[in-house]
């Protein structure tokens, strides 16, 4: 019974749906404010029903399967992408008591599940039989290879520091001191996260002005809805990952609850949006340059720093 609740309500399907609707709304509203606009406003209080309507509309609209595509690949991939993107929620310790799948190796599961997602999106682009989608797919693959190295390395730093791969115990062991030690790792994680989630300045794979909408180009209706769901579920996984790994998860100043985790996730989201509103997109070439000449070496240095800190600071204190 409890399992059923976890799968269907929290942190399962309903929660992800609600999160998608709410975050989509929040993004649009926040973006509008930075644009000196208002954003959705007439549907529901503060326009909060707007994204609900948008997503339900997508659900009921015609889903076109263009001529010439592989129908199996074309309709299978969005479903698969959405499912895979939702899986990490099971591994994250949402509150001191709720972790759906408790495992010694939950950190490993988290990063692998996050890391596989771009590959699925590449397949969606590959199956679309559209030149622009294909280019989008290729771009996503290139970006994945160069960004995930530093993503994995950054995610490794808490594991090394605390000597565990279990997210639960990472959160339990985290302190103010460990927060400061992990801060450079958090910075790197955040940058890699922008790349992984295809956010500006790394929104190269779905660059509207260059390749229309990348791998999204041919998708409509339900399939598009699933892809959007996958995107937002991945947002959640990555934000929650950031909060758990580096910011102390559900721990708060005064009490421990889901609420603290939520606030931390939103802070990460706000940073992401602010960057989105002020930074133009860079090109593939610059991204590769940046990733391999700065980001990866820095992540390696960060690992070295963590090891030193573990021996001389963290170990000495605790």
């Amino acid at each position: 019974m409890e399992m059923l609740f976890h799968v269907v309500v929290f942190p399962g399907l309903l929660y992800v749906l609600l999160w998608t609707v709410a975050l989509f709304w929040f993004f649009r509203k926040f973006m509008a404010a930075l644009h000196k606009r208002i954003g959705p406003s007439f549907n529901g209080p503060g326009g909060s029903f707007q994204t609900l309507f948008d997503l339900s509309k997508l659900l009921t609209k015609e889903s076109i399967t263009p001529k010439g595509v592989n129908p199996y690949l074309f309709s299978m991939m969005p479903l698969l992408a959405a499912t895979i993107a939702m899986l990490p929620t099971a591994l994250i310790p949402w509150t001191p008591t709720i972790t759906v799948v408790e495992s010694q190796y939950s950190l490993l599961g988290l990063v692998v599940l996050i890391g596989i997602e771009p590959f699925l999106l590449f397949l969606t682009g590959f199956g679309s039989d559209n030149k622009y989608s294909f280019l989008g797919g290729i771009r996503i693959l290139t970006q994945m290879i160069s960004m995930e190295t530093s993503f994995f390395l950054a995610a490794l730093s808490p594991a090394i520091l605390f000597g565990t791969l279990s997210l639960q115990s990472i959160v339990e062991q985290s302190t103010w001191l460990s927060f400061w030690i992990l801060l450079p790792g958090f910075g790197l994680y955040f940058i890699a996260l922008l790349g992984l989630l295809e956010q500006p300045p790394f929104n190269i794979p779905d660059a509207e002005q260059e390749i229309v909408y990348g791998f999204y180009t041919e998708y409509s209706g339900t399939n598009y809805f699933l892809l959007k769901l996958a995107e937002f579920a991945e947002f959640m996984a990555v934000f929650a990952g950031a909060a758990t790994l580096f910011l102390g998860g559900f721990k708060g100043l005064f009490f421990e609850s889901y609420f603290c985790l939520f606030i931390k996730m939103i802070i990460v989201a706000v940073f992401m949006m602010a960057i989105r509103a002020s930074t133009p997109r860079i090109t593939m070439k610059h991204m590769l340059d940046f990733s391999w000449t700065y980001l990866v070496p820095l992540s390696l240095l960060n690992i070295a720093w963590i090891m030193l800190a573990k021996i001389f600071i963290f170990g000495a204190v605790s």
Partner: peptide, 12 residues
């Protein structure tokens, strides 16, 4: 700026 995917300038 739109060409680089940034619409803020257009709005401002």
């Amino acid at each position: 700026y739109n060409a680089m995917g940034l619409h803020t300038v257009m709005m401002w």
